[in-house]
Design a protein around this nucleic acid. Structure first.
Lengths: 244, 244
DNA sequence: ACAAAAGTGTTCGAACTACACCCATGG
DNA sequence: CCATGGGTGTAGTTCGAACACTTTTGT
């Protein structure tokens, strides 16, 4: 294992969408008393790790994301750095850090990343550690200050999704308009009128209709679309608001 | 001097507005060869410093901001963390760090903050170190990677100003509508129609007209307004866009 | 045939754009 | 009295909200 920097880490809030719910990827954190097998810790955390010497922090996040999901080149963006002096001070976290004994400091600043992945393209079965998708509304107990980090990541996702077409990162390459609508409704916690939503999406020149339909559904198959970042970058315009 | 953490720092991009231009606060970085008086370094940096042991990073930023401006309780928000492994690797920066000899690491991760201050309420004259407002379009050479940090801070300001009423932080408590307009035009680099801008601002219930006019101007004195964050928080509504 | 989701158009009000003339003050 | 910026209204257009029925497929 290459040497790490003891007081700087990276944590990733990785979102996925299964066409029903918005989910976040968590890793189980479990610690047993060696002899008695008494469970000392059994909760969940975001995926994260310390950065390596001579490693850029963006690269550290990409490395960690890849190690968990197998994915490369997906949406990954820093959103906040958490550095309160006492953020790892609760007993469970101190116990965990002591047992890890990998030379981590007890004053760790962590840089948090938002990641959006097409969870249909990922299978988690291979992992040694227990890794699981949890619906964002039904999270288990989280270790460290990861509840707070998660909340801020979700806030950031909600903000960004409102002003930039990043929702597509959570869908497969080809998607239907109502999948897109359900995604936005899940993220924002609202409902949209189907006709108006469709009208709005069809105006977006970067959402491109295919000559192709859904298959194997037991209702009228929907048309498939792809998102073109290229068209988006070419046609985007600035917008002035600071709402009334 | 209390002990600092050698590899974590804070840098503040502090914006001010003088009713003509958007400015940023810089500190001179000067180093002379002790004997020959030859100037080895003479450039500028953002204001920043290492965080202290047991100090929250937000508090570090507030401390640094106060030490430079004398101001407390102003807009201050983390916007990005810069942690490339080689960010302090150029010769001037290495030289500077060596001469500082305060036990700083050569691999420093810095958490950058955006700060908006009413520069009419600040006088810089008292400072020992050379501190100066520079128009954002006429910056001198910046040390370290501070040019990049500044650019990202300005981007963030432009983003935020579009969706939240934070521009008011750059104005005195009482301001006129055309001061507000000039501010937005400076930040966004655009021009607005005077009548439409006024109409839009008057719709905002959180911009409150006073029974008071400008004094000492050699034209028709303008009405003064104040911004009410309280009214804003009460009346704000979410907005869905991801623009066409 | 039925269940399930896809697809489609119109009307109304709100908001945005463009645009030109008179007013109050200091010098 | 002149220079400077303050203050005002209207018409045309675009954009968003509300709302119901028909179509296609699998079972």
């Amino acid at each position: 294992m290459p040497k790490t920097i003891s007081n700087i880490s990276v944590d990733c809030v990785i979102f996925g969408f299964d066409f029903k719910q918005l989910n976040v990827l968590l890793v189980e954190r479990k610690l047993e008393e060696p002899k008695s097998k008494k469970v000392l810790i059994d909760d969940w955390t975001l995926v994260g790790y310390h950065i390596l010497e001579d490693e850029n922090i963006d690269n550290a996040a990409a490395r960690i994301l890849k190690s968990m999901s197998g994915l490369d080149h997906v949406f990954l963006e820093q959103f906040h750095t958490f550095g309160n002096a006492n953020r790892l001070n609760n007993p469970k976290d101190k116990l965990w850090l002591k047992h890890q004994s990998e030379g981590f400091s007890d004053r760790v600043v962590t840089v948090a990343y938002l990641s959006l992945i097409d969870s249909t393209s990922v299978s988690l079965s291979l992992k040694e550690r227990n890794v699981k998708w949890y619906p964002v509304n039904e999270l288990p107990e989280l270790g460290f200050d990861h509840r707070k980090i998660f909340e801020k990541g979700l806030d950031r996702l909600r903000d960004k999704v409102r002003s930039e077409p990043i929702g597509f990162e959570l869908l497969p390459e080809k998607f239907t308009i109502s999948q897109l609508q359900r995604l936005y409704e899940e993220i924002l916690g609202t409902e949209f009128d189907r006709r108006n939503f469709r009208k709005k999406v069809l105006q977006m020149k970067y959402v491109i209709p295919l000559d192709e339909k859904q298959k194997g559904v037991k209702h009228k198959p929907a048309q498939l679309f792809i998102f073109s970042r290229e068209v988006y970058e070419k046609t985007k315009t600035e917008r002035f608001d600071f709402s009334v």
